[in-house]
Simulated scan of single mutants.
Amino acid sequence: MADFKLNINGESRQVSIDPNTPMLWVLRDHLQLVGTKFGCGIAQCGACTIHIEDVAVRSCQLPVSAVGEQKITTIEGLSKEGEHPVQQAWLEQDVPQCGYCQAGQIMSATALLKANPSPTDEEIDQAMNGNICRCGTYTRIKKAIKSAATTAQNS
């Protein structure tokens, strides 16, 4: 066991845990931040996506010891009441069906728009590649990303 001081959603959080524990389980089991979902466990589906310094990262394969003092953002940290532009676009475009993958989808989309505020269709496809939606809402996801980009540009 080791002690880790983590910067999660703008708050300092402390955990005493095995250094090899994936961030997914630190968040869900130790800090009760359950918005980040377990999907495949091998970083292939995107359900567990979080941000490390505004970059989308799969938390199921990221050991807590690799995080250090970097800023971590989870779906809970995007906004208190779901008012983030991407979350709003998701609602406006009626993206969620079962909803299980949506936190990871939203986290990947927000990282994309932070790095590239006006992505092309190809850039959206590339950034969202690896975020699997079993319900097949990909068309609505792309529309929501474009809508959030347009909203941000007009703000």
Rank of each mutant, 00 (worst) to 15 (best):
A47F: 09
A66I: 10
I42W: 12
S65A: 15
A47G: 08
C45L: 10
C45I: 07
H84P: 00
A56I: 04
G82E: 06
E83A: 00
L62Y: 10
Q61D: 15
V64S: 13
C60H: 09
G82D: 06
A43N: 10
H84N: 01
K80Y: 11
T73R: 11
H51I: 13
T74C: 09
I42Y: 14
L91K: 10
T73N: 08
Q87E: 08
T74S: 10
S79F: 01
I52P: 04
I50H: 08
S65Q: 15
L91D: 05
L78C: 04
T73Y: 09
A47T: 04
C45H: 06
L62N: 12
I52T: 07
C45V: 10
T73P: 12
P85W: 00
A89Q: 05
G68Y: 14
E81W: 07
T49M: 11
H51K: 09
L62T: 15
V86T: 01
R58F: 04
E76L: 06
E83Q: 02
S59I: 14
H51T: 10
T49G: 04
S59L: 13
S79G: 02
A56G: 00
A89E: 00
W90E: 02
E83D: 07
G41H: 02
D54V: 11
D54P: 12
I75W: 07
S59Q: 12
E76H: 02
L91I: 11
E69M: 14
D54F: 12
T49E: 08
G41F: 10
R58C: 03
I42T: 15
I52L: 11
V55Q: 14
A66D: 12
L62A: 11
I75F: 10
I42M: 15
E69G: 13
T74Q: 09
K71R: 15
H84W: 00
V57D: 05
V67H: 12
I72Y: 03
K71E: 14
G46C: 08
K71Q: 14
G82L: 04
G46K: 03
Q70A: 15
G77C: 11
G68D: 08
A43T: 07
V57I: 15
G41E: 06
E81N: 13
S59Y: 13
I52M: 08
Q44K: 11
Q61K: 12
Q87T: 05
S79C: 05
L78W: 04
C45G: 09
E69A: 14
A56D: 01
V57S: 05
Q87S: 07
A89V: 01
P63N: 09
Q88C: 01
I50E: 06
I42D: 15
R58D: 02
L78K: 01
P63R: 07
C45M: 08
L91W: 03
C60K: 07
Q44R: 09
C45A: 07
W90M: 04
I72W: 00
E76W: 03
A43H: 07
R58E: 00
G77D: 09
G46N: 03
C60P: 13
H84C: 00
V55N: 09
T74I: 13
P63M: 12
T49P: 09
I42N: 14
L62E: 12
W90L: 07
E69V: 14
E76A: 05
I72S: 03
E53L: 10
L62F: 11
E83I: 01
Q87I: 02
E83F: 01
Q88H: 02
C60Q: 07
Q44I: 10
I50W: 06
V55C: 09
K80V: 13
R58K: 05
A47M: 06
